[in-house]
């Protein structure tokens, strides 16, 4: 099946065998191939080089490539596993795997910790959270006085920073998330269960003889 497509995948640096990617993730082979359809569409939206750059991810998230956003930048940096400034197909599948409904909760907690630990010190610091709150207010055009922001931070750190050293470590984050499970909602994408029906064209481009469901 799909022999006429067989050379096109060479245009995708970092392309990995769907069977292998499936064996390392919660995705079936068909789901990995459906994700490739999504990857092709995002990675060709600005520069057709088989890789996703920051502008392309922003465009996919906001339908507007000029809208620079701190959180989209964080997602990009975490998906750019090899820190090459671009996301290849293997990075894309492995990163999305954390968002699969069946992915281990532990992986979701660790990913969310890294998301908020912007400078990678191993702690979520008050200043980082304040920067993110300010970015959110800018993005959503919500208005809050500085003292209100400080009040929210006081309350949050009072609850999360158990040893009150001004920063949240990984174990404090685990406990905080356990008490506030809604914080992990963004870490699960129900869409990933239906990826083969969202991108049915994968069937025509499949390089696998028997498409597993």
């Amino acid at each position: 099946m799909g022999c006429f497509q067989s050379t096109s995948r060479k245009q995708f640096p970092g392309y990995e065998d769907p069977v292998q990617l499936s064996s390392q993730t919660a995705f079936s082979v068909s789901e990995v191939e459906a994700l490739f359809e999504l990857f092709k569409s995002i990675s060709s939206s600005v520069i057709d080089d088989g890789l996703i750059n920051k502008e392309e991810l922003q465009l996919a998230l906001f339908k507007n490539r000029k809208k620079e956003n701190l959180f989209a930048n964080r997602i990009f940096d975490l998906f750019d596993v090899k820190q090459k400034g671009v996301i290849d197909f293997g990075d894309f599948v492995r990163s999305l795997n954390v968002f699969h409904p069946n992915a281990p909760q532990e992986d979701k907690i660790n990913f969310s910790f890294k998301l908020y630990d912007m400078d990678g010190t191993g702690y979520i610091e008050r200043l980082e959270v304040k920067q993110m709150l300010i970015a959110l207010l800018c993005e959503s055009e919500m208005k809050l006085a500085n003292e209100t922001i400080e009040m929210i931070l006081d309350k949050t750190f009072m609850e999360a920073d158990v040893d009150q050293d001004g920063k949240i470590d990984k174990s404090e984050w685990h406990n905080f998330v356990a008490r506030n499970p809604s914080l992990l909602k963004i870490m699960t994408l129900p869409y990933l269960r239906d990826i083969t029906t969202t991108f049915p064209s994968f069937v025509f481009n499949s390089e696998v003889d028997e498409v597993a469901t």
């Binding site: 999504l38 995002i42 996919a60 998230l61 906001f62 339908k63 956003n69 701190l70 959180f71 989209a72 930048n73 964080r74 997602i75 999305l96 968002f99 998301l115 908020y116 959270v129 993110m132 709150l133 970015a135 959110l136 207010l137 993005e139 959503s140 055009e141 919500m142 208005k143 809050l144 209100t148 009040m151 929210i152 931070l153 309350k155 949050t156 609850e159 999360a160 905080f176 506030n180 809604s182 914080l183 909602k185 963004i186 994408l189 129900p190 869409y191 990826i195 969202t198």
Partner: peptide, 27 residues
């Protein structure tokens, strides 16, 4: 709009569009 101050900082942050990856799947 005024942000709901009863939410903790992370609840507020997680409402960002930049963290809403479901938009990747919307054609």
């Amino acid at each position: 709009p005024i942000a709901p101050v009863t939410m903790n900082a992370f609840e507020l942050i997680s409402t960002s569009q930049g963290l809403n990856l479901s938009s990747l799947f919307e054609k």
